[in-house]
Structures are given as C-alpha cells and as structure tokens.
Lab assay of single mutants.
Amino acid sequence: KRYRAVYDYSAADEDEVSFQDGDTIVNVQQIDDGWMYGTVERTGDTGMLPANYVEAI
C-alpha cells in the first residue's frame, strides 16, 4: 500500500521515521490503531510512523 504524508513528522524515537508533508510512504503495514510501518520513498528511511499523519493514495 502507498500513503501520502499530510503533515510533517519528526521521529521521536530511533525506530520511527521522519517525513514531510507530501512525501510518499511505501510498503506500509498497519501495526495497531495508531501506528504503521513503512518506507519514506524520498529518503529511503524505514520505520514506524503515526497513522493519523498519512492518507491512502
């Protein structure tokens, strides 16, 4: 699945990823209600991200 960031996010922990509004997130997997795991296409960084900061595309 592919998602697009709708807000900027700065990683708060080493297992999270930072991204900017408009970034595409690929290979996304749902972890639980609030978190997903995926790769930021622009940077190649992979990690956890907050589900409410992205939307499906």
Score class of each variant (00 low, 15 high):
K1Q: 13
K1I: 14
K1A: 12
K1H: 11
R2T: 14
R2M: 11
R2P: 08
R2Q: 11
R2G: 08
R2F: 08
R2D: 10
R2K: 13
Y3A: 03
Y3C: 06
R4D: 05
R4E: 06
R4T: 09
R4P: 05
A5C: 08
A5Y: 00
A5L: 01
A5H: 02
V6A: 06
V6N: 09
V6T: 09
V6W: 06
V6P: 01
V6E: 05
Y7D: 08
Y7G: 13
Y7C: 15
Y7R: 15
Y7P: 00
D8R: 08
D8S: 14
D8M: 08
D8P: 14
Y9K: 03
Y9P: 01
S10G: 07
S10Y: 13
S10C: 13
S10V: 14
A11V: 03
A11I: 03
A11L: 02
A11E: 03
A11W: 04
A11Y: 03
A11N: 04
A12K: 15
A12G: 10
A12M: 14
A12L: 13
A12V: 11
A12I: 12
A12E: 11
A12H: 12
D13Y: 12
D13I: 09
D13E: 12
E14K: 12
E14W: 10
E14V: 13
E14C: 11
E14L: 11
D15E: 11
D15Q: 13
D15A: 13
D15K: 14
D15N: 15
D15H: 14
E16R: 06
E16S: 07
E16Y: 10
E16F: 08
E16W: 06
E16P: 00
E16H: 12
V17W: 00
V17E: 00
V17N: 00
S18P: 02
S18R: 02
S18V: 03
S18F: 04
S18Q: 02
S18E: 04
F19P: 00
F19A: 01
F19H: 01
F19S: 01
F19E: 01
Q20W: 10
D21M: 15
D21H: 15
D21I: 15
G22I: 02
G22S: 05
G22Q: 05
G22L: 03
D23G: 00
D23Y: 03
T24L: 14
T24W: 14
I25N: 03
I25V: 07
I25H: 01
I25L: 10
I25R: 00
I25E: 01
V26T: 11
V26D: 05
V26R: 08
V26W: 07
V26C: 09
V26I: 14
N27V: 14
N27F: 10
N27R: 09
V28G: 06
V28N: 02
V28I: 08
V28F: 04
V28Q: 02
V28E: 03
Q29A: 09
Q29W: 13
Q29V: 15
Q29N: 08
Q29C: 14
Q29K: 14
Q29L: 13
Q29S: 13
Q30P: 10
Q30S: 11
Q30G: 07
Q30T: 11
Q30H: 13
I31K: 08
I31S: 06
I31Q: 07
I31T: 06
I31A: 08
I31G: 08
I31Y: 10
I31M: 11
D32Q: 10
D32T: 13
D32H: 12
D33K: 11
D33L: 10
D33I: 10
D33A: 12
D33E: 13
D33M: 09
D33V: 11
D33P: 09
G34Q: 15
G34A: 14
G34W: 14
G34Y: 15
W35N: 04
W35P: 02
W35M: 07
W35S: 04
W35Q: 04
W35K: 06
M36G: 01
M36R: 03
M36A: 05
M36H: 05
M36Y: 13
Y37S: 07
Y37P: 01
Y37C: 08
Y37F: 12
Y37G: 02
Y37N: 05
Y37T: 07
Y37D: 03
Y37K: 09
G38K: 01
G38H: 00
G38T: 00
G38W: 03
G38D: 00
G38A: 05
G38Y: 02
T39R: 07
T39V: 06
T39H: 04
T39A: 03
V40L: 03
V40W: 02
V40S: 01
V40E: 01
E41R: 05
E41I: 08
R42I: 04
R42D: 03
R42H: 06
R42T: 05
T43C: 03
T43I: 02
T43P: 03
T43K: 01
T43F: 02
G44N: 07
G44T: 04
G44K: 06
G44M: 06
G44Q: 07
D45R: 12
D45K: 13
D45L: 13
D45M: 13
T46W: 07
T46M: 08
G47R: 00
G47S: 01
G47K: 00
G47I: 02
G47D: 00
M48C: 09
M48S: 06
M48R: 15
L49I: 14
L49F: 15
L49Y: 11
L49N: 00
L49H: 01
L49D: 00
P50A: 04
P50I: 05
P50R: 11
P50Y: 06
A51E: 07
A51D: 06
A51H: 06
N52G: 12
N52A: 14
N52H: 12
N52W: 10
N52S: 13
N52L: 11
N52I: 12
Y53I: 06
Y53E: 03
Y53A: 14
Y53R: 10
V54C: 05
V54Q: 00
V54W: 02
E55Y: 09
E55H: 09
E55N: 07
E55K: 12
E55S: 09
A56W: 10
A56C: 10
A56Q: 12
A56F: 13
A56R: 10
I57G: 05
I57Q: 08
I57V: 10
I57D: 08
I57W: 09
I57T: 08
